[in-house]
Every structure is written in C-alpha cells, then in structure tokens.
C-alpha cells in the first residue's frame, strides 16, 4: 500500500479522534480497521439521544473510492435483515446511491461516522425506546430500491423506475430521447439531470445489479411484464454475467 493512502487515513483518523477519542485505528496488510466505543449524542427534530455502541469499521485499500463498512460488535443489534444488518454483520445504511451521495458531501472518516453511522445507530436506539423508526426505513431488496427511486425521481410509476434504472444499467443515456417517465418531454428537459446525477455516483455494473433486483421485485408483484418494458440489453448483460459466474465457479 502506498504512503499517500496511509497518510490520508491517518490524517482523517486524527480529525476523527478529536470527537471520538475511544476509537482506535489498526492496520493489517493494507486494510485498516477502526475499533472501539462510539460514544455519541445526536439530535433529530427535537429528539435527543445519547448512546454508546461497540463498533468496528473496516476500511479497504480502495478507500475512499470504496466506502468503509460498519458493524456493531457489542451484541446489541440482532443479526437480522429486519434490523437492516447484512449477513456479514455490516450495517445496511441505505440505498447504495443514497449512501454514496452522503459520503461525497463529506468524504472523510469523520463524515462517514457523523452522516451515516450515527444516524443509523440513532435510528436503532430510538426504535428500542419508542418501538418505531424515527425517519422510516426502506423495504428489503428490490422493493426498497423502488421506494427510494420513486421518491428520488418524484414519480409514482414503478415501471418508470425500471426504465430509468435501465438507462443507467446499460449506459444508454441519450438526451434527445423521450423521458421514460411518460411525460412526453425529452429526457434532457425532464428527468435527465437526475439520471446524470446518479450516473456520476456509481458504475454501470452496480446499476445493473440494482436493475435486476428491481426487475425481480416487479415480476413478483405484477401479473406480467411485457417484453418491451424489459430492457433487452440489460437482460443480455445479466445473462452474460451469470454465465461468467457459473464458469468461474465450476472452473475452480
């Protein structure tokens, strides 16, 4: 691992320790871990909560292109998707583009903790005390993504979400095409800006897997999805990926 990366992490850690002195930084072969007690006091719309969690944050060699992953190691949060915990124990902080956007606003370890980890823990703590989620939650899987994108694009049609994500999944944005939301306007005069904002946040491949999740969810809930609605190109790309994956697995 090169020096400038180490310096970056150490500098950001120094800033972090000023506010959270009970976290320590450890290195193991190019990957870093922040461990310890996160003691915080946070306020959301007139509700203030003070709490403390034992956490572990892993920082890969690809940081800050890749975001860190956070988990709770004190046994307080059940290892359950209903509590928004992934099978590996890490917090599922939100929809992927949402997390990336938030991190981009303050792309430091301190930013990650204050803008993503603490709100997540606040939410859990609040739920423990009051039985409800303070700022709501997304449903699991594809349905949650649909909920997020309906709000982001400010539309009501789930099929339009599928089409819009389809553009991002196949990298086929064309400003002069009609907007998939059905407004009749060209996309560059309609949802174009929102699509381009998303495009800057993650790769085509990442959108491709989101597209698949959305597609699978819609298949479950809609009686039939006519072929023309399903982005053929995306499906071809997905099939290609599956074949490659299968070859990889059987080859080993």
């Amino acid at each position: 691992m090169d020096d400038s990366h180490r310096v970056l992490i150490e500098t950001q850690f120094r800033d972090l320790s000023e506010f959270y002195p009970d976290l320590r930084l450890e290195e193991n072969q190019g990957e870093w871990v922040l461990k310890g007690i996160l003691d915080f006091s946070a306020c959301y719309e007139n509700t203030k909560i003070q709490d403390s969690f034992q956490i572990e944050i892993s920082i890969s060699a690809e940081y800050s292109r890749e975001l860190p992953a956070a988990k709770e190691t004190g046994g307080r949060i059940p290892l359950d998707p209903d509590f928004h915990i992934n099978p590996d124990g890490s917090f599922c902080l939100g929809a992927p583009v949402d997390i990336k956007r938030k991190f981009a606003q303050e792309p430091t370890l301190l930013g990650f903790i204050n803008n993503l980890v603490i709100p997540f823990l606040f939410s859990f703590s609040y739920r423990e005390r009051n039985g409800a989620m303070p700022y709501g939650e997304l449903s699991h899987g594809g349905q949650g993504l649909v909920e997020y994108y309906l709000k982001y694009f400010d539309i009501t049609s789930e099929l339009s979400v599928l089409r819009l994500i389809g553009i991002l999944a196949t990298d086929k944005y064309r400003g002069h095409h009609d907007c998939p939301c059905g407004s009749g306007k060209r996309i560059r005069k309609c949802h174009g800006n929102k699509v381009l904002e998303l495009k800057a946040l993650q790769s085509t491949r990442e959108f491709l897997s989101e597209y698949l999740a959305v597609l699978l969810h819609l298949r479950k809930t809609k009686k039939a999805l006519s072929n023309e609605l399903i982005n053929q190109q995306a499906l071809t790309l997905i099939k290609k990926e599956q074949r490659a994956l299968r070859a990889q697995v059987s080859g080993k």
């Binding site: 928004h84 939100g94 997304l138 999740a213």
Partner: peptide
C-alpha cells in the same frame, strides 16, 4: 450531532 436528511436504512436481501 445534528441529524438532517438522514438515509433510510435498507437491506439488500
């Protein structure tokens, strides 16, 4: 910490 515009938690599975 002032929490503003927080992300709604999700789970992929």
């Amino acid at each position: 910490v002032e929490i503003t515009n927080p992300s709604k938690p999700w789970t992929c599975h």
